[in-house]
Design a protein around this nucleic acid. Structure first.
Length: 594
RNA sequence: GCGCGGAUGGUCUAGUGGUAGGACCUGAGCCUUCCAAGCUCAUGGCCCGGGUUCAAAUCCCGGUCCGCGCACCA
């Protein structure tokens, strides 16, 4: 077999897993194309009963670890926000792609890239559309694919945000958020109050985000509406350091940019502590969250042999990030991004501070108050008002600026200011100029942000894919999902061995008992017992309880408990059942220990 | 958005210019003392819109959706 044939063969085998998984997902209610009755719509999926439960469990696990256990605050912001938010965040401009279509071959190309690659223009993206069209015509630029002239072709913009109107008319444009993060940043002034103005603090959000992708692909891996679980962790970059003691021994597989660029570069197996010490991960904060994330991914069922952290190459980083690592999982031989851990610096808070009326800063007290000399003005408005009319406020502004900048300007009898190109004189006595000693208790600083941002749908897909198993039981083929008990949609199935009033009554009692303690239970009395086991195997239910004749005949009431992966059975007293299964669900007990 | 391929019950699939068959699943019943058994019965389908034709699920055109490649993924 040739190398090529062998590769094809391998691919078809792995791709088969994805195909079977997608088929299982449809059939058993994990996820499926939405709006199918109307022909479906690209990039939108509905999570069915099993999928919604799995996803909810994953979200709960995330909340437990990244909000509750870390002492962070969770919020729930709207998915639609007004245009100015995205002007500030940079999504309105930065999210705009200029596309030009070739009249010959039909290929679409980034117009700004075509211009930058073939002219002396360096930042074509910032040019207005008509100008880009002019440049293309002027330089007689051609299609990179086929060489046909592009002059005269319209340059279209495509913004990946879904646009809408807030209220009637189109005077108030709004957008579906392209990431949940902005919902947190925008509320920073209030959130810092809830944190009692103390850094560091973290805010989490689990919610939907929307991107009008040009071409959604690979089932729920790339969709137009998806769920993110994000943490924005705000720190004082001068003084805050993470406590790495709890994560320094966590072993990780890292794929740094330097290795990706190297000829024979490879992944590095190391620990969080060593990676920081060796400078592989430059930000200890990013390292901290990688260290928290890895065991968490393990716990929800990601195969650690198919998991790594990959550093972004310099060219692939977002406009806001100074360093970024992705958590990646391997699916069918491809690595897919499940989370990004970005050091966003003060980018977002600074932008919102500039664009809005609020302060996106934290007041940081000095250890000792500082005494500073400061020149101030307290203008006599009864003079300035009549003298300058509508310009009076501008004059006051100028005086304040001047006092701060050059107090010697107030040395004489008059101060000269420039008003719309005209020099005007103001008597110093009318300006209230004074040099005073002031004590400053601290300063306003803009916190830096570390953002662990998780894609929930991709994680759910990975968990299902990594859990997919095929084996044989007594010579019969079996498909099952090796889901962690913590995230499995259904925790236990309860069956009467046969259709028999007494067995059914007993089984129903057990169902009620188990539900009483909060377990997710399903009851099934259809078909023979083997079929029912296989049904639960296929959706990943970790345990099945069967009521048989021994249960109802013997003195001590007992049932069999069957474990999914091994199909092993143990007999347990009904009285302890709820407690025992709860303990397993919580991870305090193993089936083997029974 | 471009190119290639595809679309038949819930799922997987056969099929022909003359209105569709199978397997599995599902439901009802029988049987059954722990792993997809058996028997009987039942529900359920040609992606959408045009065109050609006496007749279109089938041929042609357009669309939608899916998969792959290109581009895109802040």
């Amino acid at each position: 077999m040739s190398e090529q044939e062998h590769a094809d063969d391998t691919e078809s085998v792995t791709a088969a897993t994805s195909e079977r998984l997608v088929e299982l997902a449809k059939r058993r209610g994990y996820f499926f194309q939405s709006s199918g009755a109307y022909g479906g719509v690209g990039g939108f999926y509905t999570f069915g009963p099993q999928g919604a439960a799995l996803k909810g469990n994953v979200e709960d696990a995330w909340r437990d670890r990244f909000a509750v256990a870390e002492g962070n605050m969770e919020i729930d912001a709207p998915t639609i926000m007004p245009e100015p938010v995205f002007e500030a965040s940079g999504h309105l401009d930065g999210f705009d792609d200029m596309l030009v279509e070739c009249p010959e071959c039909g290929e679409s190309h980034r117009a700004d890239h075509v211009v930058e690659d073939n002219t002396e223009y360096e930042d074509a993206e910032s040019l207005p559309i008509p100008e880009v069209e002019e440049v293309i015509a002027e330089y007689e630029l051609v299609c990179p694919s086929c060489g046909a002239g592009l002059a005269g072709q319209a340059v279209e913009t495509f913004n990946l945000m879904f646009a809408t109107n807030i209220g009637p008319g189109d005077s108030d444009p709004g957008y579906m958020r392209p990431e949940t993060a902005q919902g947190i940043f925008v509320e920073f002034p209030r959130l810092k109050e809830y944190a009692r103005n103390q850094l560091p603090f973290g805010v989490t959000q689990i919610g939907r985000a929307y991107r009008n992708e040009i071409s959604p692909r690979r089932s729920i891996i790339r969709t137009r509406e998806f769920t993110q679980a994000e943490l924005e962790y705000f720190i004082d970059p001068e003084t805050d350091e993470p406590d790495l003691s709890s994560v320094e021994d966590v072993e990780v597989t890292l794929y740094p940019a330097s290795e990706q660029n190297a000829e024979d570069g490879d992944e590095i197996r190391t620990t969080i502590g060593d990676a920081v010490e060796d400078g592989i991960i430059s930000s200890p904060w990013v390292a901290y969250f990688l260290g928290v994330a890895k065991p968490w991914y393990d716990a929800v069922g990601v195969d650690m042999d198919r998991f790594r952290f990959r550093q972004h190459l310099s060219g692939e980083r977002a406009h806001y990030a100074s360093d970024c690592w992705d958590a990646e999982s391997e699916i069918d031989g491809n690595w897919i991004e499940m989370a990004g851990f970005a050091y966003r610096g003060d980018y977002d808070l600074s932008k919102h501070g500039e664009h809005s009326d609020d302060r996106f800063t934290i007041f940081k007290q000095y250890d000792e108050p500082k005494t500073v000399e400061r020149a101030t003005v307290d203008p006599d408005m009864s003079y300035l008002g009549p003298e300058f009319g509508g310009d009076a406020q501008a004059v006051v502004q100028q005086l304040e600026d001047l006092a701060a900048r050059d107090r010697s300007a107030f040395d004489g009898d008059v101060v000269e200011i420039d008003l719309e190109g005209e020099t005007r004189e103001i008597p110093v006595e009318k300006t209230g100029f004074a040099v005073e000693e002031q004590t400053e208790a601290g300063e306003h600083i803009t916190p830096h942000v570390i953002e662990p941002s998780f894609g929930v749908d991709r994680l759910v897909y990975t968990v299902l894919h990594h859990a997919y198993r095929e084996d044989e039981v007594d010579g019969e083929e079996r498909t099952y999902l090796d889901l962690e008990p913590e995230v499995a949609p259904t925790f236990v199935g309860v069956f009467p061995l046969q259709n028999d009033d007494e067995l059914e009554a007993q089984a129903n009692e057990i169902v009620a008992d188990l539900r009483e303690v909060g377990l997710s239970v399903t009851y099934d009395d259809s078909g023979n017992i083997g079929r029912r086991y296989r049904r639960q195997d296929e959706v990943g239910t970790p345990f099945c309880v069967t009521v048989d004749y021994e249960t109802v005949e013997n003195e001590e009431t007992t049932v069999t408990v069957r474990e999914r992966d091994t199909t092993d059975q143990k007999r347990l007293p009904v009285d302890d059942l709820a407690e025992t299964l709860s303990a397993i669900r919580e991870g305090d007990l193993e089936f083997d220990e029974l």
